[in-house]
Design a protein around this nucleic acid. Structure first.
Lengths: 129, 129, 129, 129
DNA sequence: GTGGTCTAGACCACC
DNA sequence: GTGGTCTAGACCACC
């Protein structure tokens, strides 16, 4: 579990945890059925309160990325993830709109943004796509 | 000034104002030298406190999008915007990383994300790029 | 935290707070990693509103002097301060130009200004430079 | 009269005028007895309201830099300037303290600040000191 | 009339 | 308990 936390970021800690786990699934480091550490263990590892980890797990559960088993901890459930595609695309579109707006005003060519995105796709998903 | 505010969004109001103005610059609706409404006027127009507008303007100023002139209000200063490109690319990269991660896990093909982005580029910047 | 506030000064309160903290870092009274009081605590201590303290902290953050951690308050981050050297030198040069101009017109010898500056360097930074 | 106004600066316009005239005296471009343009003329030249110029002149008068003659306009009165030396040194010291504090925290060696100051002295006062 | 500063108080997300 | 956001209202400097 390689979560790079940035406590000075304005991105909430629980979202950093959530995003790190989603990236882990994307890269294939976390696979369907893999167990996640307990909230207590992960919290101790990265130096955050277990409630914060729990909030991240709850969110991942509601988004269809993990399953939380009673008394048995959390496991990756990548298969469920497809049902939230529409919601994801809406959020992604809004986020992309802000990026594109700023790219245009800062005279960053669209090819550069496409290139950056492709690099990220290659880096993260090279072994899955 | 067509700012579509969403008071139910979890995106702060001042960021919605900020993003709307950046998009306005991107689309060419706001051009270099154009005056922005006073914080009081815009606040009254969209139904928010003048301090909230002021916060958006201050941020736009620090990001190089506008100049705030002593008692003449704010004006678009698109020319200065290029000096913040590196900072923008870092933030954009982080944001894109989250989008790409989720796209991969949700099995959304990269071509779709590229297509969405191109659509936004065409929609916003068709007359400038 | 020894901040000498002057409420009759035309220097804004938040700038007095900001300057006092920068001086604290310069003298070594505030060191890298040291926590600052919360905006509420410091506000109560010196008798100003928490928003005024917050404004000073936000500025210190943007200038690279402190980090503001989500719910742990602000800490000194002296290490980051070097990246703003160019900006500082520009502002300092403008300020010095005004001082020098007035010194010349008032027939204050340059040696006196150098001497005053050295005294301040010795007083503030005697233990660090 | 070479006044470089910056309307986006947080330095008030009337202070920029005041500082520009003091610098003019320092460099010898403005000499004892020289007439200043009328507030109306100067205001038109640099694009500011005549009241703003008037405020600068009033201040220069109270600081001993100029004399305002009834119906005859303002003239440089450099000779009077020496009686305000103590007040100047107090203000300069406070300003220098802020510069020095920031220089120390940003690890800018004192020699550099001295050098910058000497360059300004040479540039401005080369023909008078 | 403009933004700048400051106060006061509220609710909230986060941890 | 921490800072973040937003409102409301005041006074002020500036122009």
């Amino acid at each position: 579990m390689l979560l790079n936390m940035d406590f000075a970021s304005d991105e909430p800690i629980y979202m950093q945890i959530r995003n790190g786990i989603v990236t882990g699934i994307a890269t294939g480091k976390l696979r369907d059925g893999d167990p996640l550490p307990s909230v207590r263990t992960l919290g101790a590892d990265i130096g955050v309160n277990l409630h914060t980890v729990n909030k991240a797990y709850k969110r991942l559960q509601s988004e269809g990325f993990i399953e939380i088993l009673r008394n048995r901890g959390a496991v990756i459930r990548a298969g469920d993830s497809e049902k939230n595609v529409v919601q994801f695309l809406e959020i992604a579109e809004n986020s992309l709109k802000n990026i594109v707006s700023e790219a245009i005003t800062r005279k960053v060519d669209r090819a550069i943004i496409h290139q950056i995105m492709d690099n990220i796709f290659d880096e993260l998903g090279g072994n899955t796509q």
